[in-house]
Computed example of a mutant assay.
Amino acid sequence: MDWTLEVVIVPVSDLGRAISFYRDQVGFHLDHDTENEHMHVAQLTPPGSGCSIVVGSLPAQNAMAPGSLHGVQLVVADAAAAREELVTRGVECSEIQVIDPRDGGTFFGFSDPDGNSWAVQQIAARADKPLIPHEARGRFGADLEP
């Protein structure tokens, strides 16, 4: 049986600010921004990812303090290029740390405006072997087109 991680709830204090940060600065795709009389939520997906984040006012989100999510990890093929892209977009990032010289041992981090923290790990092999093959991305939704 396959078990896939589809959504991570990120607790934030200001939905509009969170959407702007994750979409405009970090570069996630805004899949939807849905509001009705019961809730207001947005789902955003990192390019090339099968897992999204959700921000908003669902009960599970309201039960978590804004900024209380720590250690969620993103993976990129080139940490230096990813860090430079984020810094260029105004995201404060930690310096790159090489914990182990083998592939997978290089990291940097950043936080959103509420203090939710993210680790970014370099796995250079992902450049040639992405988890979601480039030719298959279009099948998963318009936001993941090749």
Rank of each mutant, 00 (worst) to 15 (best):
G16D: 12
L44A: 06
H70Y: 06
H70E: 07
T34N: 02
V26N: 05
E85W: 00
G71S: 00
V54Q: 06
E84W: 03
N62W: 00
D112S: 05
H29F: 00
P130R: 11
D100I: 11
A119V: 14
F110A: 11
V120D: 05
Q73T: 15
V72F: 02
R137S: 13
G109K: 01
I53Q: 03
G105R: 07
V7A: 01
P46D: 09
V120K: 06
Q25T: 14
G56L: 03
A77N: 00
D14E: 05
A60E: 05
F140Q: 09
P101F: 12
A80W: 08
H38N: 07
G105N: 05
M39A: 10
V72D: 02
T4C: 04
P113W: 11
L44I: 01
A80S: 14
G50P: 04
H40N: 04
C51R: 02
D14A: 04
A79D: 11
G71C: 07
A63Y: 01
E92K: 10
H70N: 13
A125S: 15
L5A: 08
Q43S: 08
P146K: 12
A42N: 09
A63K: 03
L69K: 08
Q61H: 07
R102T: 15
F107R: 05
A127V: 13
V12M: 01
H32F: 14
A124Y: 01
G67L: 04
P66F: 11
G71Y: 09
R139G: 04
R23F: 08
F140G: 09
V72M: 04
A136L: 14
H70Q: 13
F107A: 14
E85F: 06
I132Q: 10
H70A: 13
D24H: 09
Q73G: 05
V7H: 10
R139Y: 15
V75P: 00
D114W: 14
T88W: 04
